[in-house]
Structures are given as C-alpha cells and as structure tokens.
Design a protein around this nucleic acid. Structure first.
Lengths: 258, 258
DNA sequence: GTCTATATACGGATAGAC
DNA sequence: GTCTATCCGTATATAGAC
C-alpha cells in the first residue's frame, strides 16, 4: 500500500512527505496488526478479521481514553463494537492481552518503522531536527496507540511496565547522544544535555497526550513540529552572550545533571 | 505551623525559602485536609482522624501510582493501611468520593496557596520566572497530589474531568499573559505565545509525572527549577539573529498559532 | 471508633447452540 | 465465525457486634 523510497525521506520535511514515505498508513495498520498476531487470533479469514480488529481496537482507544483501560469493561466494549462477548474472545485471549497487544504492536512494529527512514545523514543539528519531526509525525499518525501505551502501561504486566520506562530512558539517551555530538562538533551549546533531552521528549509526548488542547487552538502537526524544531534551535544556540542577566537569582546550573 | 511573611516571598528564590514562606507544609497538610472535609468524615476526634487520613491517602497515592486508581480495590487499600473495610468508610463516603476529595483539595486548597505569595511585583520576566518556580516547588512538595489529579482525573465524574482540562487551559493562559506582557514591554521576543506557554506547562507537569526519572539522574528540585527558568530565558530571548539558518528545511512558522 | 460478616452487583471468561 | 446463557470470583458498600 506504500512505496518504499523509504531510505530517502529527508527531502522536504513536512507531515505530508513523511506519510508518503512511511511503509504503513493509518488505513493499512490493521492488516499489519493481523499479520503480527495471527497465532492469537482465532478468526482466520483476513478480510473479516481486519475489519473487526479495527472496530475493536478503535473502540478500545475511545473507551480507554475516558475512564482508563481498567475502568472499561468488556461488556462496554461489546456494546460499543456491536460484537458479542463471545465474539470478542475470538480476537483477544483476555482483557490483559488486549492491552499487551497494543503495547507490543507499537513497540515492535510501529515505532521501528520510523527507524527505517534515513536518520544518519547530515549534521547533528539536522539529525536532531529529523528525529524530533519523526516523533511528532508518528505521534500524529498513531496517536491513540502512543497515548494508550503512555497512559496504560502502568496497568500492564510488570514486564511491559518496566519496558515503557526503559523506552523513555532510551529515547532520552538517543536525543542526548545527538546533542552531545553537536556540542562536540561546536555546532551547539548545551549546559545540561540530559535535562535538555528530557525536555524535548516531554514536549514530544505532550503532543499526543494533549491532542484535545492542540486541536482546540488549531495547531496542526506541521505547526507543532516546526515549533519544536525552532525551540530546539533556541535551546541549543551557540551564542555565549547568556541572554538576559540572571537578575539576582541563584543559578546552580553547574550542579545540574549526573 | 508556619510563619506568614507570605507576601514577601521573592527574596531568594530557592526551594528552601519557598517552603519556609508557604503556610502549609508536607506534615501539616492532613490537618488542613481534615478541616476541609469535616462534614464528610465520620470520625470526629481530630488526632485520630488526621493520623488515619495520612495513612489512607498516602497509601492511595502509592497504590494508584502502580496500576491506577481504578485498578486499586478498597480491599487492597484496607490491607495496605491496616484499616478494615468498615473502618475506611468512616473516612470516605465512597471510592469515587475518595478520588474527588483529592481533586477538590488540590484545586481548592493546595494550589491556591501558591497564589497567596506575591506574584505581581517585578518585570514580566521576573514574574514569569517566579511563576515557573512556584509550580515546580509546589510539584515537589505535593507531588503525589498533582500526579494523582493528572493521571486519574479521567476516572472522575464528568464535572471533575472537565475541571481538570479547564485548569490546564487556565494555567496556559496565565503563562501566556505574562509572556505577552514581556513582549509588549520589549523585554521578550516570542513568535507564538500560546505554544510557548503550553510547552512551559508541559515541562512543569513532566517534573511531577516523571519523578522516577529525575530521581534516577539525581536532578534536585532546584536543579530543575533553574533549568526551566534558563530554558524560558532562551526561548524568550530578544536576539533577532535567528540563531542558525534553517538549513534547507521549510519553516512555516508564520502559519503557526491561532 | 473499629471490626467482622454479609448483601448485592458486576466483570471476566467459557461452553455450547446455531 | 458469531451469539446466548451461565459460571464464578471479586468488588463496593452496609449492618450490626463489640
């Protein structure tokens, strides 16, 4: 369903071009999903399965987003999808597994897609900007998935829970690494790369966590990505003229960080 | 239990001085809580009530932080507190009310405390920095309360849920207002005050949402507050030399914002 | 003021008809 | 492949003893 001039994304960095290069789109995602979980899904006819998977998981995201996954009963889900309780169990092994499927699919199938794009070319500054954009674009495309995993990972088995924290740390570390390459190259300035990377990640997550807010004030995906990149540029600017004076406030920034 | 040179906080802006000026501390908070909910609490002897309220709510925060409020059963809570099921119902009207008490106490009692401090003196830049610090310091003092309300507001009654979003918008608007004063005064530069305010709020929230992470990398409250203020200074710096060039990327920032 | 025992309902899961 | 009917555990909440 997609072309694969995948390796050449950084041509013109906007949401539209990103979608065009990514090998999966919002519409084809449940075909991938079916393939990933063939073994667990009792229904074997692909057309029927894909159709119902979409109904079931879209409804799950909807219901879980108000009240949380734990508050959602399978009876709610049954009613909301029009699929009977017994029917649901042909698509999921258990309620817990339903959550785990979302988590696993996002972390093992969707998120890695982004890394199939070419991330390693260009200056550190360019690579950092590209990374930020990819996170935002992925968040826009698969927002309910990201949101669900962020909000509900705590409800999952210990293994998944630890994994979620691990991903947070890994993502932070990756951003930090590029920042430090930029600093080493003399292209950036940064007093605390750990906290700066953390902040960038927090702003990435805010994009899919507070979609209601950004929808309300009509911030588009490209608006947000552009804002985030320009924020990054300001944070990492190399002007040593430390902006304003510190106006009497004690700045212990030397103590920051590990 | 506290002095009240409340009106003069912005003396030396660090966590220690903030705690000293605030009329409530972590230890006295459940006395305030008891007073706020006298009517709902069947136990009338204050000493016993305050002691058990602390046990009950601290345990609630602990249990809700892993698994979520909805996944926590009152049996869990009973076991964890050493108070019987029947006993618990002398302190709360229902499980739902338990969550609502946290929400109401934070929004009506704790959060307003910060506004008793003097926020209106100084330049816009100073006032903005003071606001950011207050949010961070309040987050450090009452982290479980803030965390709970952020994570569990979706599980509450519609009224509380809408209120939580409302507070987010109000906080954003307040930050935005000060930013725009700074811009008007020629003290700051900002292309999109709405998104900038949103970003600052997201970073404030990250402080109490990801405490595990900041504990792990040994970022202290003052470290984070200082970082956030310096980040703000960079974002709002008035140098029109737009940092780096945009290196081939299309920047639609003119289209940003509503 | 705190406990034990219990009423009542609801949720997850499955068996078996169609 | 989907539905209905049902089992059974667990949850909230309360009544009443001490």
């Amino acid at each position: 369903m997609r072309n694969d001039n995948t390796a050449n994304w950084p041509q013109e960095q906007c949401f539209a071009s990103f979608k065009h290069c990514l090998p999966v789109c919002r519409e084809s995602v449940y075909s991938e999903f079916f393939e990933a979980f063939r073994e667990d899904i009792k229904v074997k006819r692909e057309s029927a399965a894909v159709k119902n998977l979409k109904i079931i998981f879209d409804a799950t995201f909807e219901l879980a987003s108000k009240g949380g996954f734990d508050a959602m009963s399978l009876r709610d889900l049954s009613q909301s999808t029009g699929i009977s309780m017994g029917g649901l169990y042909n698509y999921i092994r258990s309620k817990d597994m339903l959550a785990q499927m979302v988590n696993d699919f996002l972390s093992q199938r969707l998120a890695p897609l982004a890394y199939s794009l070419n991330l390693e070319s260009g200056s550190p500054r360019q690579r950092l900007a590209t990374r930020l954009r990819i996170y935002i674009y992925m968040g826009s495309l698969f927002r309910p998935w990201y949101r669900f995993v962020y909000m509900e990972s705590k409800s999952m088995a210990r293994q998944q829970r630890d994994q979620a924290k691990q991903f947070d740390l890994v993502d932070t570390a990756k951003l930090k690494e590029v920042i430090e390459e930029g600093v080493a190259a003399g292209e950036m300035h940064c007093a605390n790369s750990e906290l700066t990377a953390s902040a960038l990640l927090a702003l990435i997550q805010d994009w899919y966590l507070k979609s209601w807010k950004y929808k309300q004030n009509e911030t588009s995906t490209d608006d947000y990505a552009n804002f985030l990149v320009s924020l990054m540029d300001k944070l990492l600017a190399d002007n040593d003229q430390h902006t304003h004076d510190q106006t009497g406030y004690n700045d212990h920034s030397g103590k920051n960080n590990q």
